[in-house]
Design a protein around this nucleic acid. Structure first.
Ligand code: ZN
Ligand code: ZN
Ligand code: ZN
Ligand code: ZN
Lengths: 166, 166
DNA sequence: ACTGTTATGTTATAATGTAACATTTGTAGC
DNA sequence: GCTACAAATGTTACATTATAACATAACAGT
């Protein structure tokens, strides 16, 4: 079955983000339970912080938050938690921003394609086999075997464009 | 006319790289002449260093080289030159590596698609409208207007795969 | 309880990139 | 050539992002 999903669409400012957050945590808990992994308090807290919004979050911003409740927190605290979450596909790194964002569909581990709005900073995540297949096809032409992919597209989301045209 | 070019294919280890380098410099000189821009000694030297190979080069490695001939060189020396070269499309930044690589076709300014070999580190650059159009099509579905794109694919090039299978 | 593994604490440092202001160099008009 | 302006470089300091290395603590199976 071919995937062609808009995993995380751009959300209207009015959406009930609490639900996104809760759902993400509950999916993560389930995932870790099934895989026999530990979603420790630190890891869960970092995941919650990444899911504070639909904008990519910086590691040191997470660190600043952690410090508020536990002043002993240090960079490794954050990076270790992020490494775990990345490894398990619960978050993605946006390489062009050095920032991290919650995955819209961690059930099925993948590298997404990201559309990032210059104005509002929001990100939509796609997991699209048509894109993947095309890249595959191109790679094949010169004997390249794909192992990892990064697709980050910047531009302007619908909402922001409509705002500007008013 | 639709572009579908393998701008910089993977090169055999045996290729005459001196030619790649010379050609890149001469194209850059021409470009700057036409545009009324100055390819100053620093800028040219940085471009040469970026073109030392077909592997992405790190800013601080460039800096180390610059220091060998001019010990007063500092980070801004490099980043300014890189900014100029990026601006003029003479080099690209590989975001997922924080590294820079010479552009295979600066005549026609673009964001390429990059295929990076995990083993040898070499990069092939594509400038392919089919990929661009597909991303465009996907973006359109949710009203996203593309302005900038980053496609960086990691894997194994033909040469390295053949080596492993021996 | 013993033991090996995993996770966290802690300190230090590496790697990447930018701000701000001074100085020099190039350019164009006079 | 002189002047004035703009572009490029020098210089110092600092900001941001990430990792190394080693110590301690928490956990899981026996
Ligand atoms: Zn939400
Ligand atoms: Zn995802
Ligand atoms: Zn070459
Ligand atoms: Zn290019």
């Amino acid at each position: 079955m071919s995937k062609n999903k808009l995993l995380s669409p751009f959300k209207p400012a009015s959406h009930k983000h609490q639900k996104c957050l809760q759902s993400a945590i509950s999916v993560a808990k389930k995932h870790c339970e099934v895989e026999g992994l530990r979603l420790t308090p630190i890891r869960q807290r970092v995941l919650e912080l990444v899911w504070q919004s639909h904008e990519p979050v910086k590691a040191y911003d997470i660190l600043d938050e952690l410090k508020r409740s536990k002043s002993s927190s240090a960079p490794p605290t954050v990076y270790r938690a992020l490494d775990f979450l990345l490894e398990e596909g619960l978050v993605h790194k946006i390489e062009s921003l050095n920032a991290y964002i919650g995955c819209g569909n961690p059930k099925d581990i993948h590298k997404g394609q990201f559309f990032i709005c210059h104005d509002c900073g929001s990100v939509a995540e796609l997991d699209d086999d048509e894109i993947r297949d095309l890249l595959q096809k191109k790679a094949k032409r010169f004997g390249f075997e794909i192992n990892d992919e990064m697709v980050e597209i910047k531009g302007y989301c619908l909402e922001c464009r409509e705002l500007k045209n008013k």
